[in-house]
Design a protein around this nucleic acid. Structure first.
Lengths: 202, 202
DNA sequence: AGACTAACAGACAGGTCTGTCTACTCCAAC
DNA sequence: GTTGGAGTAGACAGACCTGTCTGTTAGTCT
Protein backbone atom coordinates (compact mmCIF):
# COMPACT_ATOMS: atom_id res chain seq x y z
CA UNK A 1 0.00 0.00 0.00
CA UNK A 2 1.59 3.24 -1.11
CA UNK A 3 2.08 5.70 1.69
CA UNK A 4 1.53 9.41 1.40
CA UNK A 5 4.39 11.72 1.90
CA UNK A 6 2.21 14.77 1.97
CA UNK A 7 -0.15 15.15 4.89
CA UNK A 8 -3.17 16.69 3.19
CA UNK A 9 -4.24 14.00 0.78
CA UNK A 10 -2.50 12.79 -2.31
CA UNK A 11 -1.10 15.15 -4.88
CA UNK A 12 -3.78 14.07 -7.32
CA UNK A 13 -6.55 14.97 -4.91
CA UNK A 14 -5.03 18.33 -4.13
CA UNK A 15 -4.72 19.11 -7.82
CA UNK A 16 -8.30 18.10 -8.53
CA UNK A 17 -9.70 19.98 -5.54
CA UNK A 18 -7.85 23.11 -6.52
CA UNK A 19 -8.88 22.77 -10.15
CA UNK A 20 -12.48 22.30 -9.07
CA UNK A 21 -12.44 25.52 -7.09
CA UNK A 22 -10.59 27.61 -9.66
CA UNK A 23 -12.25 26.22 -12.77
CA UNK A 24 -15.69 26.79 -11.35
CA UNK A 25 -14.91 30.34 -10.29
CA UNK A 26 -13.20 31.54 -13.48
CA UNK A 27 -13.94 28.92 -16.10
CA UNK A 28 -11.30 26.42 -17.21
CA UNK A 29 -10.00 28.72 -19.89
CA UNK A 30 -9.61 31.50 -17.37
CA UNK A 31 -7.23 29.52 -15.19
CA UNK A 32 -3.74 28.64 -16.28
CA UNK A 33 -2.04 25.41 -15.36
CA UNK A 34 0.57 27.45 -13.50
CA UNK A 35 -2.11 28.82 -11.21
CA UNK A 36 -3.43 25.37 -10.42
CA UNK A 37 0.11 24.27 -9.65
CA UNK A 38 0.84 27.23 -7.43
CA UNK A 39 -2.41 26.96 -5.46
CA UNK A 40 -2.25 23.22 -4.97
CA UNK A 41 1.41 23.30 -3.98
CA UNK A 42 2.43 20.74 -6.54
CA UNK A 43 5.15 20.45 -9.13
CA UNK A 44 4.29 20.88 -12.76
CA UNK A 45 5.60 17.44 -13.65
CA UNK A 46 3.30 15.93 -11.04
CA UNK A 47 0.26 17.54 -12.54
CA UNK A 48 1.15 16.40 -16.02
CA UNK A 49 1.82 12.93 -14.71
CA UNK A 50 -1.69 12.56 -13.31
CA UNK A 51 -3.39 14.52 -16.07
CA UNK A 52 -1.52 14.22 -19.38
CA UNK A 53 -3.12 17.39 -20.71
CA UNK A 54 -5.19 20.25 -19.39
CA UNK A 55 -8.19 18.82 -21.20
CA UNK A 56 -7.89 15.66 -19.13
CA UNK A 57 -7.93 17.79 -16.01
CA UNK A 58 -11.01 19.60 -17.25
CA UNK A 59 -12.80 16.30 -17.88
CA UNK A 60 -11.89 15.09 -14.40
CA UNK A 61 -13.27 18.37 -13.09
CA UNK A 62 -16.53 17.79 -14.91
CA UNK A 63 -16.80 14.28 -13.48
CA UNK A 64 -16.38 15.74 -10.03
CA UNK A 65 -19.06 18.33 -10.75
CA UNK A 66 -21.35 15.61 -12.02
CA UNK A 67 -20.99 13.65 -8.81
CA UNK A 68 -21.56 16.72 -6.67
CA UNK A 69 -24.54 18.12 -8.53
CA UNK A 70 -26.32 14.90 -9.34
CA UNK A 71 -25.71 13.84 -5.74
CA UNK A 72 -27.22 17.05 -4.43
CA UNK A 73 -30.20 16.59 -6.70
CA UNK A 74 -30.88 13.05 -5.46
CA UNK A 75 -30.31 14.05 -1.86
CA UNK A 76 -32.82 16.87 -2.15
CA UNK A 77 -35.33 14.52 -3.74
CA UNK A 78 -34.78 11.95 -1.03
CA UNK A 79 -35.36 14.51 1.70
CA UNK A 80 -38.70 15.39 0.21
CA UNK A 81 -40.04 12.02 1.30
CA UNK A 82 -41.03 8.74 -0.25
CA UNK A 83 -43.66 10.00 -2.63
CA UNK A 84 -42.18 10.32 -6.13
CA UNK A 85 -44.35 13.30 -6.90
CA UNK A 86 -42.97 15.11 -3.87
CA UNK A 87 -39.47 14.17 -4.91
CA UNK A 88 -39.97 15.81 -8.29
CA UNK A 89 -40.67 19.07 -6.54
CA UNK A 90 -38.19 18.54 -3.74
CA UNK A 91 -35.21 18.29 -6.03
CA UNK A 92 -35.57 21.98 -6.70
CA UNK A 93 -34.28 22.55 -3.19
CA UNK A 94 -30.90 21.58 -4.60
CA UNK A 95 -31.19 24.55 -6.94
CA UNK A 96 -32.07 26.84 -4.06
CA UNK A 97 -29.17 25.48 -2.06
CA UNK A 98 -26.77 26.09 -4.91
CA UNK A 99 -28.04 29.64 -5.43
CA UNK A 100 -27.50 30.45 -1.79
CA UNK A 101 -23.97 29.17 -1.74
CA UNK A 102 -21.25 31.79 -1.73
CA UNK A 103 -19.49 32.01 -5.06
CA UNK A 104 -22.35 30.42 -6.96
CA UNK A 105 -21.66 30.82 -10.63
CA UNK A 106 -24.23 28.81 -12.53
CA UNK A 107 -23.98 25.42 -14.16
CA UNK A 108 -20.39 24.29 -14.53
CA UNK A 109 -21.27 22.10 -17.48
CA UNK A 110 -22.98 24.82 -19.44
CA UNK A 111 -20.27 27.31 -18.62
CA UNK A 112 -17.54 24.93 -19.68
CA UNK A 113 -19.34 23.79 -22.80
CA UNK A 114 -19.80 27.43 -23.76
CA UNK A 115 -16.07 27.89 -24.10
CA UNK A 116 -15.38 24.58 -25.83
CA UNK A 117 -15.52 23.77 -29.53
CA UNK A 118 -18.61 22.00 -30.76
CA UNK A 119 -17.44 18.41 -31.12
CA UNK A 120 -15.03 18.36 -28.18
CA UNK A 121 -14.94 15.72 -25.42
CA UNK A 122 -16.10 18.41 -23.02
CA UNK A 123 -19.19 18.84 -25.11
CA UNK A 124 -19.85 15.12 -25.22
CA UNK A 125 -19.41 14.81 -21.48
CA UNK A 126 -21.87 17.62 -20.91
CA UNK A 127 -24.51 16.07 -23.14
CA UNK A 128 -24.02 12.79 -21.33
CA UNK A 129 -24.48 14.45 -17.95
CA UNK A 130 -27.67 16.17 -19.00
CA UNK A 131 -29.02 12.94 -20.43
CA UNK A 132 -28.26 10.99 -17.28
CA UNK A 133 -30.02 13.56 -15.13
CA UNK A 134 -33.03 13.68 -17.43
CA UNK A 135 -33.25 9.89 -17.52
CA UNK A 136 -33.32 9.85 -13.74
CA UNK A 137 -36.02 12.53 -13.61
CA UNK A 138 -38.00 10.59 -16.21
CA UNK A 139 -37.83 7.55 -14.00
CA UNK A 140 -39.10 9.44 -10.98
CA UNK A 141 -41.83 10.99 -13.12
CA UNK A 142 -42.89 7.55 -14.27
CA UNK A 143 -43.06 6.28 -10.71
CA UNK A 144 -45.07 9.34 -9.83
CA UNK A 145 -47.63 8.24 -12.37
CA UNK A 146 -47.20 11.12 -14.78
CA UNK A 147 -49.29 10.91 -17.90
CA UNK A 148 -46.25 11.65 -20.08
CA UNK A 149 -43.10 11.06 -18.01
CA UNK A 150 -40.77 12.06 -20.82
CA UNK A 151 -42.50 15.38 -21.29
CA UNK A 152 -42.64 16.12 -17.59
CA UNK A 153 -38.95 15.31 -17.22
CA UNK A 154 -38.16 17.56 -20.14
CA UNK A 155 -40.15 20.36 -18.57
CA UNK A 156 -38.53 20.00 -15.18
CA UNK A 157 -34.98 19.80 -16.50
CA UNK A 158 -35.72 22.80 -18.67
CA UNK A 159 -36.67 24.68 -15.54
CA UNK A 160 -33.62 23.40 -13.75
CA UNK A 161 -31.31 24.49 -16.53
CA UNK A 162 -33.02 27.83 -16.72
CA UNK A 163 -32.50 28.37 -13.02
CA UNK A 164 -28.90 27.31 -13.26
CA UNK A 165 -28.26 29.53 -16.24
CA UNK A 166 -29.68 32.59 -14.54
CA UNK A 167 -27.35 31.81 -11.70
CA UNK A 168 -24.33 32.84 -13.75
CA UNK A 169 -25.59 36.35 -13.24
CA UNK A 170 -26.90 36.70 -9.74
CA UNK A 171 -27.71 34.11 -7.15
CA UNK A 172 -31.16 35.56 -6.86
CA UNK A 173 -33.15 33.27 -4.55
CA UNK A 174 -36.33 34.44 -6.28
CA UNK A 175 -35.27 32.37 -9.29
CA UNK A 176 -35.09 29.15 -7.32
CA UNK A 177 -38.31 30.01 -5.57
CA UNK A 178 -40.13 30.61 -8.84
CA UNK A 179 -38.66 27.46 -10.34
CA UNK A 180 -39.93 25.37 -7.46
CA UNK A 181 -43.41 26.85 -7.60
CA UNK A 182 -43.50 26.24 -11.31
CA UNK A 183 -42.32 22.69 -10.82
CA UNK A 184 -45.14 22.10 -8.37
CA UNK A 185 -47.66 23.41 -10.86
CA UNK A 186 -46.29 21.25 -13.66
CA UNK A 187 -46.18 18.14 -11.53
CA UNK A 188 -49.72 18.69 -10.31
CA UNK A 189 -50.91 19.14 -13.85
CA UNK A 190 -49.10 16.07 -15.13
CA UNK A 191 -49.90 13.74 -12.29
CA UNK A 192 -53.16 15.22 -11.16
CA UNK A 193 -55.15 14.38 -8.08
CA UNK A 194 -53.55 13.85 -4.71
CA UNK A 195 -50.32 12.23 -3.60
CA UNK A 196 -50.51 8.57 -4.25
CA UNK A 197 -52.07 9.81 -7.25
CA UNK A 198 -53.80 8.55 -10.21
CA UNK A 199 -54.00 11.01 -13.07
CA UNK A 200 -57.05 13.11 -12.43
CA UNK A 201 -57.95 16.13 -14.45
CA UNK A 202 -58.24 19.18 -12.30
CA UNK B 1 -22.73 62.27 -46.80
CA UNK B 2 -19.42 60.48 -46.32
CA UNK B 3 -18.65 58.06 -49.06
CA UNK B 4 -17.27 54.61 -48.53
CA UNK B 5 -14.03 53.55 -50.03
CA UNK B 6 -14.73 49.92 -49.37
CA UNK B 7 -17.65 48.38 -51.20
CA UNK B 8 -19.10 46.16 -48.47
CA UNK B 9 -20.09 48.59 -45.78
CA UNK B 10 -17.91 50.67 -43.49
CA UNK B 11 -14.90 49.19 -41.77
CA UNK B 12 -16.67 49.42 -38.43
CA UNK B 13 -19.60 47.38 -39.69
CA UNK B 14 -17.36 44.76 -41.17
CA UNK B 15 -15.46 44.44 -37.89
CA UNK B 16 -18.63 44.14 -35.86
CA UNK B 17 -20.21 41.64 -38.24
CA UNK B 18 -17.11 39.48 -38.20
CA UNK B 19 -16.80 39.72 -34.43
CA UNK B 20 -20.45 38.77 -34.09
CA UNK B 21 -19.96 35.66 -36.13
CA UNK B 22 -16.68 34.56 -34.57
CA UNK B 23 -17.49 35.51 -30.99
CA UNK B 24 -20.74 33.64 -31.10
CA UNK B 25 -19.16 30.53 -32.57
CA UNK B 26 -16.12 30.29 -30.30
CA UNK B 27 -16.75 32.66 -27.44
CA UNK B 28 -15.00 36.04 -27.22
CA UNK B 29 -12.08 34.56 -25.35
CA UNK B 30 -11.64 31.94 -28.02
CA UNK B 31 -11.10 34.48 -30.76
CA UNK B 32 -8.03 36.65 -31.00
CA UNK B 33 -8.09 40.18 -32.28
CA UNK B 34 -5.79 39.11 -35.10
CA UNK B 35 -8.39 36.67 -36.32
CA UNK B 36 -11.10 39.32 -36.35
CA UNK B 37 -8.76 41.57 -38.31
CA UNK B 38 -7.84 38.92 -40.83
CA UNK B 39 -11.43 37.80 -41.42
CA UNK B 40 -12.86 41.27 -41.72
CA UNK B 41 -10.06 42.47 -43.99
CA UNK B 42 -9.23 45.45 -41.85
CA UNK B 43 -6.08 46.95 -40.44
CA UNK B 44 -5.34 46.54 -36.78
CA UNK B 45 -5.16 50.28 -36.22
CA UNK B 46 -8.64 50.62 -37.70
CA UNK B 47 -10.08 48.12 -35.27
CA UNK B 48 -8.47 49.83 -32.31
CA UNK B 49 -9.68 53.16 -33.53
CA UNK B 50 -13.32 52.09 -33.51
CA UNK B 51 -13.01 49.87 -30.45
CA UNK B 52 -10.32 51.09 -28.04
CA UNK B 53 -10.02 47.67 -26.44
CA UNK B 54 -11.22 44.16 -27.06
CA UNK B 55 -13.66 44.54 -24.18
CA UNK B 56 -15.31 47.41 -26.03
CA UNK B 57 -15.70 45.17 -29.03
CA UNK B 58 -17.22 42.47 -26.85
CA UNK B 59 -19.73 44.93 -25.42
CA UNK B 60 -20.65 46.12 -28.90
CA UNK B 61 -21.11 42.46 -29.83
CA UNK B 62 -23.47 41.96 -26.91
CA UNK B 63 -25.47 45.02 -27.93
CA UNK B 64 -25.82 43.54 -31.38
CA UNK B 65 -26.93 40.24 -29.90
CA UNK B 66 -29.43 42.06 -27.72
CA UNK B 67 -30.96 43.76 -30.72
CA UNK B 68 -31.11 40.55 -32.71
CA UNK B 69 -32.52 38.31 -30.00
CA UNK B 70 -34.91 40.76 -28.41
CA UNK B 71 -36.03 41.70 -31.89
CA UNK B 72 -36.66 38.07 -32.81
CA UNK B 73 -38.60 37.61 -29.60
CA UNK B 74 -40.88 40.57 -30.28
CA UNK B 75 -41.31 39.61 -33.90
CA UNK B 76 -42.37 36.10 -32.92
CA UNK B 77 -44.80 37.50 -30.39
CA UNK B 78 -46.20 39.92 -32.96
CA UNK B 79 -46.76 37.14 -35.45
CA UNK B 80 -48.81 35.22 -32.92
CA UNK B 81 -51.54 37.80 -33.25
CA UNK B 82 -53.03 40.64 -31.26
CA UNK B 83 -54.01 38.70 -28.17
CA UNK B 84 -51.36 39.18 -25.46
CA UNK B 85 -51.89 35.67 -24.15
CA UNK B 86 -51.16 34.28 -27.59
CA UNK B 87 -48.08 36.46 -27.82
CA UNK B 88 -46.74 34.99 -24.59
CA UNK B 89 -46.81 31.57 -26.19
CA UNK B 90 -45.83 32.75 -29.65
CA UNK B 91 -42.55 34.22 -28.55
CA UNK B 92 -41.29 30.68 -28.04
CA UNK B 93 -41.22 30.36 -31.81
CA UNK B 94 -38.14 32.56 -31.63
CA UNK B 95 -36.50 29.85 -29.55
CA UNK B 96 -37.46 27.21 -32.07
CA UNK B 97 -36.13 29.36 -34.87
CA UNK B 98 -32.83 29.85 -33.08
CA UNK B 99 -32.48 26.12 -32.37
CA UNK B 100 -33.00 25.31 -36.00
CA UNK B 101 -30.43 27.75 -37.23
CA UNK B 102 -27.14 26.26 -38.38
CA UNK B 103 -24.37 26.95 -35.90
CA UNK B 104 -26.73 27.56 -33.02
CA UNK B 105 -24.69 27.71 -29.86
CA UNK B 106 -26.95 28.79 -27.05
CA UNK B 107 -27.39 32.16 -25.41
CA UNK B 108 -24.57 34.51 -26.29
CA UNK B 109 -25.06 36.46 -23.08
CA UNK B 110 -24.86 33.48 -20.80
CA UNK B 111 -21.92 32.06 -22.72
CA UNK B 112 -20.05 35.33 -22.57
CA UNK B 113 -20.89 35.96 -18.94
CA UNK B 114 -19.62 32.49 -18.10
CA UNK B 115 -16.14 33.44 -19.18
CA UNK B 116 -16.11 36.88 -17.61
CA UNK B 117 -15.21 37.85 -14.06
CA UNK B 118 -18.07 38.48 -11.68
CA UNK B 119 -18.22 42.28 -11.55
CA UNK B 120 -17.22 42.96 -15.13
CA UNK B 121 -19.08 45.24 -17.57
CA UNK B 122 -19.98 42.15 -19.57
CA UNK B 123 -21.73 40.78 -16.53
CA UNK B 124 -23.61 44.01 -15.95
CA UNK B 125 -24.68 44.19 -19.58
CA UNK B 126 -25.98 40.64 -19.38
CA UNK B 127 -28.02 41.31 -16.26
CA UNK B 128 -29.42 44.40 -17.91
CA UNK B 129 -30.41 42.45 -21.00
CA UNK B 130 -32.17 39.76 -19.00
CA UNK B 131 -34.00 42.41 -16.97
CA UNK B 132 -35.16 44.26 -20.05
CA UNK B 133 -36.51 41.09 -21.59
CA UNK B 134 -38.25 40.06 -18.41
CA UNK B 135 -39.76 43.52 -17.99
CA UNK B 136 -41.18 43.27 -21.49
CA UNK B 137 -42.61 39.81 -20.81
CA UNK B 138 -44.08 41.09 -17.57
CA UNK B 139 -45.81 43.85 -19.49
CA UNK B 140 -47.30 41.41 -21.98
CA UNK B 141 -48.35 39.15 -19.11
CA UNK B 142 -50.08 42.08 -17.45
CA UNK B 143 -51.94 42.95 -20.62
CA UNK B 144 -52.91 39.31 -20.93
CA UNK B 145 -54.61 39.62 -17.56
CA UNK B 146 -52.35 37.26 -15.66
CA UNK B 147 -53.11 36.93 -11.97
CA UNK B 148 -49.47 37.46 -11.09
CA UNK B 149 -47.69 38.97 -14.12
CA UNK B 150 -44.32 39.05 -12.37
CA UNK B 151 -44.45 35.38 -11.54
CA UNK B 152 -45.63 34.38 -14.99
CA UNK B 153 -42.86 36.43 -16.59
CA UNK B 154 -40.33 34.81 -14.30
CA UNK B 155 -41.63 31.39 -15.24
CA UNK B 156 -41.55 32.07 -18.95
CA UNK B 157 -38.09 33.62 -18.96
CA UNK B 158 -36.88 30.70 -16.89
CA UNK B 159 -38.16 28.39 -19.59
CA UNK B 160 -36.61 30.54 -22.26
CA UNK B 161 -33.23 30.54 -20.56
CA UNK B 162 -33.45 26.83 -19.99
CA UNK B 163 -34.16 26.27 -23.66
CA UNK B 164 -31.32 28.54 -24.68
CA UNK B 165 -28.92 26.86 -22.27
CA UNK B 166 -29.73 23.38 -23.51
CA UNK B 167 -29.07 24.69 -26.96
CA UNK B 168 -25.37 25.02 -26.25
CA UNK B 169 -25.33 21.27 -26.46
CA UNK B 170 -27.55 20.19 -29.25
CA UNK B 171 -30.03 22.14 -31.25
CA UNK B 172 -32.62 19.56 -30.39
CA UNK B 173 -35.97 20.85 -31.66
CA UNK B 174 -37.71 18.77 -28.99
CA UNK B 175 -36.45 21.28 -26.44
CA UNK B 176 -38.11 24.22 -28.12
CA UNK B 177 -41.24 22.15 -28.65
CA UNK B 178 -41.43 21.17 -24.99
CA UNK B 179 -40.75 24.73 -23.92
CA UNK B 180 -43.61 26.03 -26.02
CA UNK B 181 -46.05 23.44 -24.75
CA UNK B 182 -45.01 24.22 -21.22
CA UNK B 183 -45.44 27.92 -21.84
CA UNK B 184 -48.96 27.30 -23.09
CA UNK B 185 -49.80 25.37 -19.94
CA UNK B 186 -48.38 28.05 -17.68
CA UNK B 187 -50.12 30.86 -19.49
CA UNK B 188 -53.44 29.01 -19.39
CA UNK B 189 -53.03 28.41 -15.68
CA UNK B 190 -52.07 32.00 -14.92
CA UNK B 191 -54.61 33.74 -17.09
CA UNK B 192 -57.40 31.25 -16.83
CA UNK B 193 -60.45 31.31 -18.98
CA UNK B 194 -59.99 32.22 -22.60
CA UNK B 195 -59.21 35.15 -24.83
CA UNK B 196 -62.14 37.48 -24.60
CA UNK B 197 -63.88 35.10 -22.21
CA UNK B 198 -64.21 32.15 -24.54
CA UNK B 199 -63.06 28.67 -23.59
CA UNK B 200 -59.44 27.87 -24.35
CA UNK B 201 -58.88 26.69 -27.82
CA UNK B 202 -56.54 23.85 -27.03
C1' DA C 1 -3.10 72.17 -55.39
C1' DG C 2 -2.93 71.28 -50.68
C1' DA C 3 -4.89 69.70 -46.37
C1' DC C 4 -7.45 66.37 -44.15
C1' DT C 5 -9.37 61.95 -43.10
C1' DA C 6 -10.00 57.07 -43.17
C1' DA C 7 -8.09 53.11 -43.93
C1' DC C 8 -4.28 49.65 -45.03
C1' DA C 9 0.05 46.89 -43.96
C1' DG C 10 2.71 44.97 -40.77
C1' DA C 11 6.58 45.07 -37.32
C1' DC C 12 7.11 45.02 -32.50
C1' DA C 13 6.92 44.85 -27.29
C1' DG C 14 5.59 42.54 -23.32
C1' DG C 15 2.95 39.22 -21.43
C1' DT C 16 0.63 34.52 -20.85
C1' DC C 17 -0.33 29.92 -22.15
C1' DT C 18 0.65 24.81 -22.53
C1' DG C 19 3.66 21.28 -22.33
C1' DT C 20 8.66 19.32 -21.97
C1' DC C 21 12.72 18.58 -19.73
C1' DT C 22 16.64 18.32 -16.38
C1' DA C 23 18.16 17.81 -11.77
C1' DC C 24 17.31 16.95 -7.06
C1' DT C 25 14.91 14.86 -2.68
C1' DC C 26 12.50 11.92 -0.03
C1' DC C 27 10.87 7.30 1.56
C1' DA C 28 9.71 2.48 1.48
C1' DA C 29 10.59 -2.08 0.07
C1' DC C 30 13.61 -5.57 -1.26
C1' DG D 1 22.42 -0.36 0.84
C1' DT D 2 20.53 -0.02 -3.24
C1' DT D 3 16.82 0.58 -6.26
C1' DG D 4 12.64 2.62 -7.80
C1' DG D 5 8.54 5.37 -7.33
C1' DA D 6 6.53 9.77 -6.26
C1' DG D 7 7.22 14.29 -5.67
C1' DT D 8 9.66 19.13 -5.91
C1' DA D 9 11.75 23.13 -8.25
C1' DG D 10 12.12 25.67 -12.05
C1' DA D 11 14.14 26.70 -16.73
C1' DC D 12 12.73 26.59 -21.37
C1' DA D 13 10.51 26.34 -26.09
C1' DG D 14 7.06 27.75 -29.06
C1' DA D 15 2.79 29.54 -29.74
C1' DC D 16 -0.55 33.06 -29.10
C1' DC D 17 -2.56 37.38 -27.13
C1' DT D 18 -3.37 42.43 -26.68
C1' DG D 19 -2.18 46.78 -27.75
C1' DT D 20 1.23 50.37 -29.88
C1' DC D 21 3.62 52.44 -33.42
C1' DT D 22 5.51 53.75 -38.07
C1' DG D 23 4.72 54.45 -42.70
C1' DT D 24 1.78 54.32 -46.92
C1' DT D 25 -2.35 54.92 -49.93
C1' DA D 26 -6.50 56.85 -51.62
C1' DG D 27 -10.36 59.65 -51.81
C1' DT D 28 -12.76 64.26 -50.25
C1' DC D 29 -13.08 69.07 -49.17
C1' DT D 30 -11.64 73.83 -49.58
Amino acid sequence: MPTTRTPAGSARDRILDTAFRLFYAHGPRGVGVDTVIAESGVAKATLYKHFPSKDDLVLAYLDKVDQAWFGALRAAAREAGDEPREQLVGMFDALAGACRREGYHGCAFINTAAESPAGSPVHARTVEHKNVVRAWVTDVARRAGAADPELLARQLTLLLDGGLASGVLDGDPAVAEAAKRTARALVDAAVGGAPGGRPTRQ
